[in-house]
Amino acid sequence: MTSVGVVVLTMGSRPEELRRGLESMLAQKDVELDIVCVGNGWDPVDLPAGVRPVFLPENLGACGGRNAGAAAVTGDVLFFFDDDAWLTDPDFVSRAICAFDNWPALGILQPRVHDPLSESDATRWIPRVRKGDPYESSAAFSVWEGALLVRRSTFDAAGGFGDELFYYHEGIELAWRCWDSGDVAWYAGNLEAHHPAAAPTRHDMFYRMHGRNRVWVARRNLPTPLIPVYVGTWTALHLIKSRRDRAGLRPWFDGWKEGWRNDPGPRRPISWRTAGRMALRGRPPVI
């Protein structure tokens, strides 16, 4: 049986949601789970039986916290899970593992995300340019990390999440590196995870990290000629999208400038062959 290492990341600020998510994970059937709750700057307490704590005295960000959790669990597949996510299908994990078992090239699997309190699925979590039907599965070139399954070998080949990114856009880097390793990242519209459809702007750091990491993802992962094209495309798109949110432009551009000025960490560009594979799939790494 394929074993699964579950990494639930939390700062301890949502105890009711955390317990809901952990209980939904413990309710999964016909799977072997090794579950840890990673406290990012918080010592996990009052955890259900079957969940081990991992205490990080300092908040290492989403990337560092998930990496610490991945190192603490066993499993052929890793399941990264936010503290406000939850499952209602007790066969969710077993169905996902069947996909990995039946498709050796599958490296990353992102489910469809739904908020039961909302009338529709949050389209920002459908990882394709033309969102279309959220139930339609497709290749993915960016992934949402809040309920994400990754083959351990794919995760190791990618070098895990980039600690330097701290938070935001790390799913782009992981997906690109998955494709660069020869594996496939996939959006599974037939698998459903739940998460509040809250705006990411609720996080204080959102605009700065969004702008900085958009530049850093390019500088860390793209062939040199594609870096200005990718950043230029996304800068133009952000300006268009921000017509109704002018207040966020200044912190976004502060982050954007920081992205060019500061060291993004180790550079590991994808190959031109990978860029071509992505283009043939309809998502060249310039958008």
Rank of each mutant, 00 (worst) to 15 (best):
S3R: 05
V7P: 00
G12E: 02
P15Y: 01
P15F: 07
R19M: 03
R20G: 12
E23G: 08
A27D: 03
D30F: 00
D30P: 02
D30S: 05
V31I: 01
V31H: 01
V31G: 02
C37Q: 02
D43F: 03
P48F: 04
A49P: 08
P57I: 09
N59C: 10
L60R: 14
A68Y: 03
A72L: 04
G75Q: 07
F80Y: 09
D83L: 04
D84L: 08
T88V: 13
D89E: 00
S94T: 11
I97E: 00
F100P: 05
L106N: 01
Q110V: 05
H114L: 13
D115C: 05
L117W: 07
A122F: 11
R124D: 14
W125H: 09
G132L: 07
G132T: 10
G132F: 05
P134S: 11
A140P: 06
F141G: 00
W144M: 13
E145F: 07
E145S: 14
G146L: 15
A147D: 06
S153H: 08
S153Y: 01
F155P: 07
G159D: 06
G162W: 11
L165D: 10
F166G: 07
Y168G: 08
G171H: 01
I172C: 08
A175I: 04
W176A: 00
G182I: 07
W186N: 15
W186K: 09
Y187M: 07
H195C: 04
A197K: 08
A199Q: 11
D204Q: 14
D204P: 12
M205Q: 13
Y207W: 15
R208W: 15
R208D: 08
R212H: 12
R212P: 10
R214L: 15
R214P: 10
V215T: 13
V215Q: 12
L222N: 01
P223H: 00
P225E: 03
P225A: 09
V229M: 15
T233G: 12
T235I: 14
L239C: 09
D245N: 14
G248N: 14
F253R: 06
G255H: 11
G255A: 15
W256D: 10
W256C: 13
W260Q: 10
R261L: 10
P269A: 00
P269Y: 07
P269G: 05
S271Y: 04
P285Q: 04
